[in-house]
């Protein structure tokens, strides 16, 4: 069974590109376009990887990140932060596993995700 990855990103095009990259890296992808929906899904499911945009409607990426880091269920979950602001990214280097600053290349995400499979 493929490992599950959440893509929490409100831009449909980017969400599609990221999903394609993760699918190529052999992940089962669930795209979530809204912070509130993401919060709900995270309560129900424990994905192996979360691609998290910091700039989200209803609930901010930062709040979701805090929620994930508080919960022991997500100890094995890799969190990749996506932001347009390098400054903002700096602030989350400790909490997130990786911080990617937009623009994010398709190959860059695909190769990174491929390396993050459980051994």
């Amino acid at each position: 069974m493929k490992e599950l990855a959440f893509i929490i990103e409100d831009d449909k095009d980017l969400s599609y590109i990221f999903a394609s990259a993760l699918e190529q890296a052999n992940y089962e992808v669930e795209a979530i376009l809204d912070g509130l929906a993401a919060k709900k899904r995270l309560e129900e499911t424990t994905p192996h990887m979360v691609i998290l945009d910091m700039h989200l409607p209803s609930i901010s990426g930062a709040d979701l990140l805090t929620q994930i880091r508080k919960d022991a269920r997500f100890t094995d979950t890799s969190v990749i932060i996506i932001t347009a602001d390098a400054r903002m990214g700096e602030a989350f280097t400790d909490a997130a596993d990786f911080v990617l600053v937009k623009p994010i290349a398709f190959t860059q995400l695909r190769d990174l995700a491929a390396r993050l499979h459980k051994a």
């Binding site: 831009d11 095009d13 980017l14 590109i17 990221f18 347009a84 937009k102 623009p103 994010i104 290349a105 398709f106 190959t107």
Partner: peptide
């Protein structure tokens, strides 16, 4: 950055 990222992504 967001639409430019999309352009880049599709091209790639």
């Amino acid at each position: 950055r967001t639409p430019l990222n999309a352009i880049l992504g599709y091209a790639e």
